[in-house]
């Protein structure tokens, strides 16, 4: 009877056993990194938009308050993408001939919405509420980053559950006084965030032990 297996298969079989184990681990590692990468979280990715709107120009350059356009952010779950009417409050006279703003003028004239691409899209099983975060002292910049320095809007934070929980477990690291919510450049006085944060948790009646309950965000 001839030999079925060539002697070199001894080496090959050992290689494939070890290689297989490494490959499986490697695949897991790669998929873990992929889930946290901008490919999945969309952090830093700029979407194509119907109009090249610049927060850098409107917020950083002109100093327009967030709430001038996002009127419902303090009281509602959603901050509200402004209606075209709001854009045209100024652009009826400023850049009123600009071809860049043609979609805005068309939108007002024809009463059709501008189809913006959503930049921060939470899963439908997360019930996020802007209003409560603002009332309790989370600044815009904590989740949206330096929006006043973004010529085109992108997601600055991953908004994964892990990321949300980091703050829900330790809100004292992030919370700020009500007057500074919309301030993009605020720093805690003296750099002592923790003392201030603990005091604000007291003042704003934040039940930290309950912030990590499932039903706080999921229903």
């Amino acid at each position: 009877m001839p030999q079925i297996f060539h002697p070199s298969l001894n080496t090959l079989s050992r290689l494939s056993i070890f290689g297989g184990a490494f490959a499986a681990l490697g695949l897991l590692a790669i998929s873990y990194m992929l889930v946290g990468s901008p490919y999945q979280t969309q952090v830093g990715i700029i979407h194509d938009q119907p109009v090249q709107f610049s927060h850098e120009h409107h917020v950083g350059g002109l100093g327009i308050d967030c709430r001038y356009c996002h009127t419902s952010v303090e009281i509602s779950a959603v901050s509200g993408v402004p209606p075209t009417y709001t854009c045209m409050s100024c652009h009826s006279q400023i850049w009123s001939e600009s071809p860049m703003l043609q979609p805005v003028r068309d939108s007002l004239k024809n009463d059709t919405p501008i189809a913006w691409a959503k930049v921060h899209d939470l899963p439908d099983f997360v019930y996020f509420h802007h209003g409560i975060h603002i009332q309790k002292g989370i600044g815009c910049v904590s989740c949206h980053g330096r929006i006043d320095q973004m010529p085109l809007t992108f997601k600055d934070k991953p908004l994964t559950m892990e990321w949300c929980l980091e703050c829900h477990r330790h809100p004292e690291k992030y919370i700020r006084p009500y007057e500074e919510i919309f301030n993009m450049e605020w720093k805690p006085p003296g750099g002592d965030q923790l003392t201030l944060g603990r005091k604000l948790i007291e003042d704003n009646h934040i039940p930290v032990d309950r912030l990590t309950n499932c039903s706080v965000c999921h229903r």
Partner: peptide, 8 residues
């Protein structure tokens, strides 16, 4: 600011 940029 908007007036400085040309608004009535």
């Amino acid at each position: 600011m908007i007036v400085k940029r040309g608004f009535s």
